[in-house]
Structures are given as structure tokens and as C-alpha cells.
């Protein structure tokens, strides 16, 4: 059996806070092989006797809970989430049907009729499951100022980009940001790869 030096309480607390702020570290910790458990009992008991009870318990509890949550979130398969959205857009708006079709030879009237089905249904789905808002509230075409310390994830500069902000420019696209996502709950037993089931009509 290997002997492991176990971290003290404050070291554990600081580690927990680092995990909170760093998903990559959290993933590494989660995926690391578990320590042999038998050696952890004794030093832990000593630790608890040393540190004052009133301080330790509540703090440790809160931190552990948060870590649990992070781990749980990262466990959700991003692939399943993407497939779920695809299934919703197909169910409500037949999006996959539409995109899988070859429309090169179809007349505009037929494409237009199909587009109405897709538009009406996908719009309903979008409103039901996502709360979207523009990144910038100004009207498109209006003059805007990009402040110092702006977030390049939220604002993409184009044209004559040089020097340091603030920049003056014109809002070409107001952007979209998901304020909220409200996907229905789906148990892990659901086969996410079935985007739409085959339908068989029994006469």
C-alpha cells in the first residue's frame, strides 16, 4: 500500500475553490483514479479533532455540494443535448426533413410552402425552448461605441480595425444571446440518436 499525505482542511478548501472556477481542473480531478480509501480514515479523524467544529462543518458542506453540481453538469453528454435540439426542431418544424431534401429541382412555390411549415414550427420551438435577446439593443445601422475592455465574444469587429478601443462604428448585426434555455427534461434511458422515429400506420 502506498502512503499518501492527505491535504489539510484549508488546503482542501482552496483546492475546492480552484475547482469551482476551473472546469478543466474539475474534469481532471473527476477522471483521476480514486485513491485507496483505507488510509484516508485515520488522518481525517485527527483533522476533525484539531479544527474547531463550528467553523468547519458548514463551510465544508457548502463547498462539497457545489463541486457535486459541477461534476454532474459536466457529465451531461453534449452530444445528447445537440441531438435533443435537433429532435425538437424536427418534431415541431420538420427541419431535418427539409434540410435532407434535394430542393435544386423544386419550384419556388413548393419550396415556399414547405418553408412556411418549417418556419412556423421552428419559430414555435425557438420561442418555447429558448429565450433569445439581441446582444446590442441599438437598431441595426445605428452608430455605436465599443468601449475599452469590451468582450470580443460578444462583439465581433470588422473593417478597419486598428489601435485601441473605444471604437466608433456602425451596428451591422445586433447579435443574439440565449438569455435562458428551457429544454424539457429527458431521462438518460432515451436513445438520443433517434431524431425522429419511423412512423407505421396500422390500418
Amino acid at each position: 500500500m502506498t502512503t499518501v499525505t492527505l491535504p489539510g482542511f484549508f488546503e482542501r478548501l482552496s483546492l475546492a475553490l480552484r475547482v469551482l472556477g476551473d472546469p478543466t481542473l474539475a474534469a481532471r480531478l473527476r477522471d483521476a483514479p480514486a485513491l485507496p480509501s483505507s488510509s484516508s480514515e485515520a488522518p481525517r479523524q485527527i483533522e476533525e479533532r484539531v479544527v474547531e467544529k463550528i467553523v468547519e462543518r458548514p463551510v465544508e458542506k457548502v463547498v462539497e455540494k457545489t463541486i457535486e453540481k459541477i461534476v454532474e453538469r459536466t457529465r451531461i453528454d453534449p452530444e445528447a443535448g445537440a441531438l435533443h435540439v435537433l429532435a425538437l426542431l424536427q418534431r415541431e418544424g420538420r427541419l431535418v426533413d427539409f434540410l435532407q431534401e434535394d430542393i435544386a429541382g423544386a419550384g419556388d412555390a413548393d419550396v415556399g410552402a414547405a418553408a412556411r411549415v418549417v418556419h412556423a414550427g421552428c419559430k414555435k420551438a425557438l420561442q418555447q425552448y429558448f429565450v433569445l435577446e439581441p446582444v446590442r439593443g441599438e437598431a441595426e445601422g445605428a452608430g455605436v461605441v465599443v468601449d475599452r475592455g469590451f468582450d470580443p465574444q460578444q462583439i465581433r469587429l470588422s473593417g478597419n480595425v486598428s489601435g485601441a478601443p473605444p471604437f466608433k462604428g456602425t451596428l451591422a448585426h445586433a447579435g443574439w444571446r440565449a438569455k435562458d434555455v428551457k429544454l424539457p427534461d429527458r431521462p438518460p434511458s432515451v436513445d438520443a440518436r433517434v431524431v425522429a422515429p419511423a412512423e407505421v400506420e396500422i390500418p
Partner: peptide, 13 residues
């Protein structure tokens, strides 16, 4: 617009 039941949306609508 009323979609057809099959996966052909264009022409089936």
C-alpha cells in the same frame, strides 16, 4: 400549409 406525413416536405406540402 399542411405538410404531408412522409419525410418529403417539398412537394408533399
Amino acid at each position: 400549409a399542411i405538410p404531408g406525413r412522409g419525410s418529403k416536405l417539398v412537394g408533399g406540402t
